[in-house]
Computed example of a mutant assay.
Amino acid sequence: MRHHPDALMIFAAGFGTRMGPLTADRPKPMVEVAGKPLIDHARAIAEDAGIGRIVANLHYKPEPLIEHLNGTGILLSHERDTLLDTGGGLREALPLLGPGPVFTLNSDAVWTGANPLGELRSAWNPDRMDALLLLLDPNDARGHPGAGDFTLSDGQLNRGPGYVYSGAQIIKTESLHDVAETVFSLNLIWDRMIAAGRLSGIVHQGEWCDVGHPQGIAEAEALLDYERDV
């Protein structure tokens, strides 16, 4: 079993309800930002980081995404009957991802600065971590209201206001098999890791924009334009 990740799960199965009419006829990863679908922004990050195996899960209106990804080499995990949430979806995709820790990346964000998967890879220490989450200072998290998701102390995470979870991580997958439910969130796994002192975090060197809602499109495009201009 490998101890360092070389496989990536892109979460792309959600309903995209916050997008309103923009997802009436397509899944959220096919919504365009700066002239290309969100799924292509995620693919570019993965390719730049040299990820060897990429899997995307599908559920809501999957046909446009299937057609778009045809020929890219991305493997597809079909959640045909039930949306399995992040934990259940990741477990369902394990036969495609292979054994050992994996990267995961939400498909509804854009990034500037350092490659997020590269940052995680450089900081990953499987001897003392069961998961490593990439976080943001709230000032660098556009389109994301609220006081943050985690506190960070000496590299260890706890629940509470402070840093925003970016949607990128490395996680060991063995504990997914300990959950009896079919549909479950990775929050359940993270809470168990927190209790064991095994959930770690680092802060992204750059900015990020949540594109889970229509207003996030303009904010994301403004962020990308700003990066090109500086």
Rank of each mutant, 00 (worst) to 15 (best):
G100F: 04
G88I: 09
L120N: 02
M129A: 12
S200H: 13
D149Y: 04
M30A: 09
M19P: 01
S77E: 14
Y165D: 05
S153Q: 09
T112M: 08
L22P: 00
R121W: 00
F15D: 10
H78Q: 10
L199Y: 07
Y165H: 10
L75T: 13
N106E: 14
V179I: 15
G100H: 06
P5Q: 06
F15C: 01
P29F: 04
G87K: 06
L84E: 11
H177I: 12
I45T: 09
P161E: 10
L152C: 03
K172W: 01
Q156Y: 10
I170K: 02
A46F: 05
H177R: 15
A196M: 13
E219M: 13
D225M: 13
K61R: 11
G35C: 12
A46R: 04
A56C: 14
N187C: 11
M193P: 05
E119G: 00
N57M: 05
T182S: 15
A49Y: 01
R192G: 15
T151M: 10
L136D: 04
A49T: 08
M193S: 12
L38Q: 06
D225K: 15
L83C: 03
H144L: 10
V110K: 02
E219Y: 05
L133C: 06
G89F: 09
L96G: 13
N115P: 10
A12S: 14
P29H: 07
H204Y: 03
S153I: 07
D229I: 07
T173W: 05
H3G: 04
T151L: 06
G52W: 01
L90V: 11
T104L: 11
N106K: 02
A12Y: 06
G118I: 00
E227G: 04
N158Y: 03
P161N: 11
D178L: 14
W124A: 03
L176N: 11
S175W: 08
V230A: 11
P95Q: 13
R2E: 05
H204C: 00
V110W: 03
S200D: 08
L132Y: 03
G160N: 11
L105A: 13
G143H: 06
P99N: 12
V211K: 01
G162L: 08
H144F: 09
C209E: 00
Q215T: 10
Y226K: 14
N106M: 07
L223E: 01
L97W: 06
L188S: 15
P64W: 00
H3T: 14
I10C: 08
G98Q: 07
R228V: 14
G201A: 04
W111V: 11
K36F: 04
D178A: 15
Y226N: 09
L132W: 03
G118E: 04
R80V: 01
L22G: 02
A56G: 10
S185G: 15
